[in-house]
């Protein structure tokens, strides 16, 4: 079997390298076809230029600050709450539908509420990031905890583990994969919520810059910034993935 798997493995690696190359090639082809798509080079140099002249840095810093603060708050509140609620079947039955039914509410419609409470400040951005990120984090923490093998919990009890040890040594490690997938989704939703809220009302941030580039028809900068947001999302996920690997060891 592995005789066939060896060429397949290098083929897979080559294919994985080819995918982003093809995506960029597709972008370049689209740019060649229509002036409404900025070229790859122009987009990257527009972003590099804005970064170099110092005008982009505060925007990136403000966006990241709001995303990271909102994400961290969501994790700190959401994971313990999810694990706690899922350990009690009745609480779980009461709470789970409340969270899962709010998943369909686009966070951006809550923005007016946060703006009226906090004004156009970083706090409004953090609040909307929390409202977006906490739901998947709570839901996956609950799902992960619910699926912990009951035999493991019995084993922990028979070893007379304290509640804390049981939580730390048995429940959280068993639920970790699920919790981590929730953190990844939560991070990208927090990023999205902050960017979108910056489209609507902000004094700084990447979203605001995308919005103004759109209004001023600075297409290369707009495309470049969209790519920057995608890269921030991927970088955040990669970071969480590394944490997961370290925690799993």
């Amino acid at each position: 079997m592995s005789i066939h798997a060896v060429p397949a493995r290098s083929f897979v690696t080559a294919g994985r390298i080819a995918v982003p190359v093809l995506l960029v090639a597709g972008w370049a082809a689209a740019a060649a076809l229509t002036p409404e798509v900025a070229t790859v080079g122009a987009s990257l140099s527009a972003v590099a230029g804005a970064w170099a002249d110092g005008t982009l840095r505060p925007d990136v810093a403000d966006t990241l600050q709001a995303v990271i603060a909102g994400f961290a708050l969501s994790a700190v509140m959401g994971i313990p709450f999810g694990v706690w609620a899922a350990r009690r079947t009745y609480t779980y039955q009461v709470v789970e539908p409340l969270f899962s039914s709010t998943a369909a509410v686009p966070r951006i419609v809550l923005l007016p509420i946060f703006l009226s409470l906090f004004g156009i400040t970083v706090n409004a951005k953090i609040a909307i990031a929390v409202s977006a990120a906490i739901v998947p984090i709570v839901l996956t923490s609950m799902a992960g905890t619910r699926t912990v093998n009951p035999t493991l919990i019995k084993l922990g009890r028979s070893l007379e583990m304290s509640r804390w040890t049981l939580l730390r040594r048995v429940i959280v490690p068993a639920a970790l994969a699920s919790i981590m997938s929730g953190l990844r989704i939560g991070f990208s939703l927090a990023l999205l919520a902050v960017i979108l809220s910056e489209f609507v009302a902000a004094t700084s941030g990447i979203g605001l810059r995308i919005q103004s580039a759109y209004s001023l028809q600075q297409l290369p900068l707009m495309y470049g910034l969209v790519v920057l947001v995608v890269l921030v999302g991927l970088a955040g996920n990669l970071g969480i993935w590394f944490l997961e690997r370290r925690a799993a060891r």
């Binding site: 409404e36 798509v37 990208s188 995308i210 999302g233």
Partner: peptide, 14 residues
């Protein structure tokens, strides 16, 4: 999953 797809919206608009 990590890509906030909605940020592509301005490019679709253009």
């Amino acid at each position: 999953y990590a890509v906030p797809v909605v940020v592509f919206y301005p490019t679709f608009l253009v």
